[in-house]
Computed example of a mutant assay.
Amino acid sequence: MLNSPHTAPDAGPRHVAIIMDGNGRWAQARGRPRLFGHHAGARRVREVVEACPGLGIKYLTVFAFSTENWKRTQAEVAGLMSLFRRYIIKETRTLKENGVRVRFIGDRVRLDSKLTGLMDALEEQTKDNDLIHLTIALNYGGRDEVARATKRLARDVAKGHLCPEDVDEETLTRYLDTCVLPDPDLVIRTSGEARISNFLLWQSAYSEYEFIDTLWPDFTAAELERLCRNFGTRDRRFGAVLA
């Protein structure tokens, strides 16, 4: 099982979502190709996953590849797809043995069959795990997710399975990729950028955000612990006025 020297902060986040940004810049600063940074970033994911139990984090969602990332060079996209395949093959046994349940969110249509086959297999092999729920957003975009969910909802309305008058926020939530997950309590973006980049738009309506300068390959479990402790100091009112 996973172990961590870090202790869970009081009232820490149960679900943390991370926009893992800065891999390319990290590599370029060292005179290396961008893919070198992506490989370093993939190794960082393991450390963060291992730190989660000790910090009271039950759900971890990471943004691996966005619907907009196809605009990158063909060489970088091909390298990333190869990295995803290698990551799954390399980490499956460890994830399974360490109680990590893995899910993928995003549109799989554009992904190659070998990769989606590995994704399906990893989900199947870890489906009974419950220590940590690791969700990997791959070919994911928040607007795309809502559009796909709306199409599925509309089909059910057209078939008579759902009345238009019954559609509300809770109804749409059931059609999202994340329907079985709680909304994130804390969203972290690394690399100094202060934007959400189409990530979990619906789910993060009341999430707390941390925009930090650290590039993703330099992000550590200690920094995650600091951010979780900072989260515990925030007054979360969800639109209400507390007495």
Rank of each mutant, 00 (worst) to 15 (best):
L115W: 01
L115M: 11
T116D: 02
T116N: 07
L118G: 02
L118W: 10
L118K: 12
M119D: 02
D120T: 13
D120K: 14
D120M: 08
A121R: 15
A121Y: 12
A121F: 12
L122Q: 01
L122A: 01
E123N: 10
E124M: 07
Q125N: 13
T126I: 06
T126V: 11
K127R: 15
D128N: 13
D128M: 12
D128S: 15
N129H: 11
N129W: 09
D130Y: 05
D130S: 15
L131C: 13
I132E: 04
H133K: 14
H133R: 15
T135M: 11
I136V: 15
I136L: 15
A137L: 02
A137K: 02
L138G: 01
L138W: 04
Y140I: 00
Y140K: 14
G141R: 14
G141C: 12
G141M: 11
G141S: 10
G142V: 04
R143D: 03
R143I: 00
D144W: 15
E145T: 08
V146C: 02
V146W: 02
A147M: 11
R148H: 14
A149V: 04
T150V: 13
K151P: 00
K151F: 04
R152H: 09
L153I: 03
L153C: 04
L153D: 05
A154S: 14
D156V: 07
D156A: 10
D156G: 06
V157P: 05
V157S: 05
A158L: 10
A158V: 03
K159I: 03
K159Y: 07
G160M: 09
H161K: 15
H161S: 09
H161P: 00
H161N: 14
L162R: 10
L162D: 02
C163Y: 11
E165D: 15
D166Q: 11
D166C: 13
D166M: 09
V167M: 04
V167Q: 00
D168S: 06
E170R: 15
T171E: 07
T171V: 15
T171D: 08
L172G: 07
L172P: 06
L172E: 06
Y175H: 08
Y175V: 13
L176S: 05
L176G: 00
D177Q: 01
D177E: 08
T178W: 04
T178E: 09
T178K: 00
C179M: 11
C179T: 11
L181H: 13
P182R: 12
P182S: 12
P182F: 01
P182D: 07
D183W: 01
P184Q: 05
D185S: 01
D185R: 00
D185C: 05
L186K: 07
L186C: 08
L186T: 09
V187P: 00
G192R: 09
E193K: 15
E193I: 03
E193L: 08
A194S: 10
A194I: 09
I196A: 04
S197L: 10
S197C: 11
S197Y: 06
S197D: 07
N198Q: 13
